[in-house]
Design a protein around this nucleic acid. Structure first.
Length: 299
DNA sequence: GCGTCCAGGTCTACC
DNA sequence: GGTAGACCTGGACGC
């Protein structure tokens, strides 16, 4: 079954897929030659659907890989999930209007860059973000790969889902340390999963919350294992760009781009981006990743 | 092959 | 409020 997903003007599929490292973490799978992105979305009835997204000339196609009937409910769920993952229903007009004011940032308008890929659920985004803290990217990949292969459900041959909160909640800390290699993060992941599975924490609502960003930041930050860096970046995936979410890599990039490699305080970086108001976190990320865009997708 | 050191965010205890 | 140390892993390095 193939579905045509409507996309907004200026939407750039590849700039969104490669907007940050998430596309390299399963269940996402990128085929560069075929120019497709595979993803696994919960179907709302305890199961999952595997989709392959294919972009051709202002048209986005979602192919359902695991068979079954195309019920109206299922079609709606797939359409909503893809729109959420690729941020198709968010307006970036104010962001591009701001970008046009600065010659340095007009490339983002030209390329349709700015949409950050996110997972089908907030839970998956938060768990993965915790797995990026205090370790190399290689270790993040090991942890996420293990979560999917050891705890995910089989969707079709060779494709497994990201584990649900209930599945993660049922694990022991020793299992997570030994098999998932997540070390001291194990109790954090367990606490998060058990609160969600027990119904005392509802993080899926965050994507549609109309609470002020500062209030949302406090809630995100209250998750054990989520500090300033992780909370700032989780907020970006919720469509709030008021925090920078600095880590050692982005600090280094800033020093390299704006200070000829000289170190500066975080407050200096904050001041540098303050002019961009509520979009400052996204402007910063665009500076950090401009070279990826130029290298991976030359115009 | 083995041991040691270091980098990477967050939490907690302490001042 | 600020700071030091612990947490855990993979990778780099020296032997």
């Amino acid at each position: 079954m193939d579905l045509i997903i409507p996309v907004p003007p200026r939407f750039n599929f590849w700039a969104t897929v490669y907007s940050h490292g998430w596309c390299a973490l399963p269940p996402f799978h990128v085929d560069k030659n075929e120019r497709t992105l595979r993803l696994v979305v919960p179907n709302g009835h305890g199961g999952n659907d595997s989709l392959t997204l294919h972009d051709t000339k202002a048209k986005l196609t979602a192919s359902l890989d695991n068979g079954g009937d195309a019920s109206p409910d299922r079609v709606t769920n797939i359409s909503n999930s893809v729109s959420s993952v690729l941020r198709l229903r968010e307006s970036f007009d104010p962001f591009y209007a701001e970008a046009k004011r600065y010659p340095r940032y007009r490339w983002m308008v030209k390329r349709g860059a700015g949409r950050l890929l996110r997972c089908p659920t907030v839970f998956e985004d938060v768990v993965k973000m915790i797995c990026t803290t205090n370790c190399s990217w290689a270790l993040t990949e090991i942890m996420v790969q293990a979560l999917v292969t050891k705890l995910g459900s089989r969707v079709r041959d060779g494709v497994q889902s990201f584990p649900s909160p209930e599945t993660l909640a049922s694990c022991s800390e020793a299992f997570l340390r030994r098999e998932i290699r997540c070390g001291y993060r194990a109790p954090y992941l367990l606490e998060l999963s058990r609160k969600i599975a027990g119904g005392t924490l509802e993080i899926e609502k965050w994507r549609t919350s109309d609470e002020p960003t500062e209030e949302l930041f406090i809630q995100v930050r209250s998750i054990k294992g989520v500090g300033e860096y992780a909370a700032g970046n989780i907020l970006k995936l919720l469509g709030r760009y008021d925090y920078l979410g600095l880590d050692s890599w982005s600090r280094g990039k800033f020093y390299e781009i704006f200070r000829k490699g000289r170190k500066v305080k975080d407050s200096t970086i904050e001041r540098h981006y303050a002019r961009f108001g509520r979009w400052r976190g996204l402007f910063m990320w665009m500076d950090m990743t401009k070279d990826w865009h130029e290298r991976e997708f030359p115009l």
